[in-house]
Write a protein that binds this DNA or RNA. Structure first.
Lengths: 332, 332
DNA sequence: GTGGTGAGTGAAATCGGTTGCAGCATCATT
DNA sequence: AATGATGCTGCAACCGATTTCACTCACCAC
């Protein structure tokens, strides 16, 4: 069935080594030999077995792409960019869907069995410990969209979520909202915690402004909608910082159903600037997270680690900016 | 660094064969031996190298998951279901993003180098030839969301797109629309062609109804929006069948901007019933494509092919149903 | 006591490649 | 002509597992 090195060697009448060398660039082979081998290989339709070679070289060019965000549409963009970026570098993404588990143990074992060269953890909700489990297992790892810590055990690429919380708070204050609230994702997500913390700390400076807080059960449309429906049974704040765009969109839909006008009755600011936020029937004012830059940097770090696994862990934090659309009232 | 079979064998004071057998169930090993090996393995933190074993067994448990739909949010659901389904069966998805290429050659070579056990092509826009290229290379393949042909070369799981086109046409007619149009995705997509064909053929039965047609450049929000903006410069039809939900949503946004009321001024029916179609601020009437069933069937077929690669190709076509929401006027 | 049976074990070949090492031309240098 | 440097090439060991085969050893029946 499958054509092997040996078949090509026989056909070309040369040694197996010669064939192997003809297919690795930088190897010591004469032009004549290479031509001869390539001819035989082409005739047989041979292409080298990447896994067999990985046995001796120790490199598979497989990269584990681990995520648990399969319900937030922004992650389709993330997967698109990651897979394309990896492919361009000659690497192959082995996808791991963590949706129903948060324990690193299984994933670590699985990815080690497949000898991945490295792992990208793409998640804003997993704890730093998750990524660190890979490092402890000796696997190069980058945590994208992760939380930076004072003693980083692994490379982290993302944004300063605390600062984003502050930024949202400042923006609401500057626009004259006198009662504001944080509406976050699940409390267990590190990104929720940080955005919450930043939001609250900024508002401590304004004791005259009323502050509320509440948490949706997931980063999803339904969860956002549901949480706002719950809030609608009491008294609403004037302005909300939603911990994520998809959450914001759920919130908007609940407000619309209840006949509340945005931004006249209630203001909403999201976070991410996913493609959909710009859709004109949504038109969400939001804090832009520079996703392409984050992914590019993650891939850069990954590539750097492949050539130097002992590289010192580093946090790359990108600045966020406010994208003005139609869900906050204008500055006075 | 890495712990190997040999290390465990030495530690346990047994042969390498014994260790191997202890880790493959069904092998002939005494309980005592197994315990001894497991103890040594646990102490060393050993777990078998899946790639090395694939060399002799000929199975990697890797499945290529090939797609080019990284801009249609419905595919996040698709990836979620596929990856979870594969994981449950002990298989690993090797993701291939075809976004900037349609030539099977590279993908086939790449996936063969990694000795994938099978390939799932998840795309409604690729030609049947794409999936067939894998079969010709001797790789078991299932084409999900593909077009069934009279002489199927590969397993196909999906819907009857022609019938969907007819269904949309019947529905528009039944609701009293007197001028209707098809607004499809790119003409090169097989799904577009089929939905178009069905739509037109049904309307041939109603010569009194005016029929239009037009094609967006992609299955995306922007493309749908742009195409409707173009149409708005002329005279609109009363009812549109959009070839896909995300296209419909773009169309809706253009209509909204232009001050046209849906469904009073214009009716829209989509196709897919993606999660977002049910969001209350979109509330799209659409034809539901049973995605979970399609993926389940695809995985079933894949598993069947793994044990019997010569299985005769089969087309599994699932019925679609209309999901009534708010973008078509009621039946008279 | 002999022979047969079956379960459990290890040696060695094998999977498809890579690579260190030694051998062999070829060529330029003295 | 002898010497050394240089560039290719093949042999054989090796990567980390599986699997065939032959062998041992109880155990049982006769």
């Amino acid at each position: 069935m499958a054509v092997t090195l040996k078949d090509v060697a026989q056909r070309a009448g040369v040694s197996r080594s010669a064939v192997s060398r003809a297919f690795t660039d930088g190897a010591s082979v004469s032009e004549k030999m290479r031509k001869k081998v390539e001819k035989a290989a082409a005739e047989l339709g041979y292409s080298p077995n990447a896994l067999a070679s990985s046995l001796t070289t120790g490199r598979t060019k497989l990269i584990g792409l681990v995520s648990n965000n399969f319900h937030n549409p922004v992650f389709l963009e993330v997967f698109d960019l990651f897979t394309r970026g990896l492919q361009e570098k000659g690497l192959r993404p082995l996808l791991v869907n963590l949706t129903d588990e948060t324990d690193p143990e299984n994933s670590v074992r699985m990815l080690r069995q497949y000898s991945v060269d490295g792992v990208v953890v793409a998640s804003s909700t997993l704890s730093p410990g998750f990524a660190e489990a890979f490092r402890e297992a000796g696997v190069p790892v980058v945590h994208s969209f992760g939380r930076q810590t004072s003693t980083p055990g692994v490379h982290v690429v993302g944004i300063d979520n605390i600062e984003c919380g502050r930024m949202a708070a400042r923006e609401l204050v500057a626009r004259g909202y006198r009662s504001v609230a944080f509406l976050g994702g699940p409390k267990t997500a590190t990104s929720t915690q940080d955005r919450h913390e930043g939001f609250m700390s900024e508002l401590k400076k304004h004791p005259d402004i009323r502050v509320g807080q509440s948490f949706a059960s997931a980063y999803s449309f339904e969860a956002g909608r549901h949480e706002m429906q719950r809030l609608l049974q009491g008294e609403l704040a004037e302005g909300y910082f939603c911990g994520d765009d998809v959450l914001s969109i759920g919130v908007l839909s609940a407000l619309q159903d209840a006949g509340r006008k945005v931004p006249q009755d209630v203001g909403i600011i999201g976070l991410n600037d996913m493609e959909m936020a710009g859709w004109q029937n949504i038109n969400l004012t939001t804090i832009r997270q520079p996703i392409p830059e984050i992914i590019l940097a993650s891939l850069e770090l990954m590539e750097a680690m492949l050539s130097n696994p002992d590289r010192h862990p580093e946090a790359r934090i990108f600045p966020c900016t406010i994208v003005e659309r139609g869900t906050l009232r204008p500055r006075p």
